[in-house]
Design a binder for these strands. Structure first.
Lengths: 117, 117
DNA sequence: CTCATATTTCCATCTTCATGGAAATGAATT
DNA sequence: AATTCATTTCCATGAAGATGGAAATATGAG
């Protein structure tokens, strides 16, 4: 479940786009049952071909998964991948502090984590 | 410290690039003192003009800050911006479930991925 | 087998991003 | 004001991302 830099870059890039971020949020809210591509296209008002492009992008990044049910392709968010991404950001980009919980209270000025380049 | 979608997209996009992710991690590790552009260019082995482009990108996204000291421009990570980004992801993209706790649980003990190159 | 449905792939086009050398800017020193 | 140092901006170029209509593929129904 550990995420490395290339995988993190892929995931960050996948979320760094208006339609894809909205799409991923929709799938997260929907839960494990997921949604068929058609329902997503309707909800987000994106042409099928564009949606398919974005779905493929998120799938390649490992953030969503696909399964077939009848003639529908159902997509659902991969929560573990998201957990891994957040964990990566907190480990590597938050100065070793508990970034999330300190969001409200501010952060310590002590930078204890120093890696010798 | 609430972050909205456009700001999150900007921040995600800024981090979704090899050199910029490495650059931001370097500044996070360095701490509040920051580093002058020249030292960053040397550490990351990036030409000055390219580095300047990436520094501007991260600055525009609000993830780093700039100050002048003599003839050097010193850059430092903005921890609050990073906190806000992680908070945004956890609120909007983790379904409000185990994401925060499992990520926080992983941060303390799991250190398998190291920046080796 | 044919038809309707669901979604993807193909393709052309447009925009944005990344790169790095050269010239320009800003700041201290003499 | 001339010089040196640190960094940015300019510019051209190539690579990658985004868009959406039309054709193709896959599945199920009659």
């Amino acid at each position: 479940m550990e995420m490395n830099s290339p995988a993190a870059i892929e995931a960050l890039g996948a979320l760094a786009q208006e339609h894809r971020l909205a799409l991923f949020r929709l799938l997260v809210q929907t839960g494990q049952d997921g949604l068929p591509a058609g329902a997503i296209a309707e909800a987000l008002e994106i042409p099928n071909s564009s949606l398919s492009f974005h779905l493929a992008h998120l799938t390649r990044a490992g953030l969503i998964q696909q399964r077939r049910e009848g003639r529908s392709l159902i997509y659902n968010a991969d929560y573990e991948a998201m957990n891994a991404l957040v964990a990566f950001l907190m480990e590597n980009c938050c100065g070793g502090q508990d970034c999330a919980s300190s969001a409200a209270g501010g952060i310590s000025t002590d930078q204890s984590e120093r890696k010798t380049a």
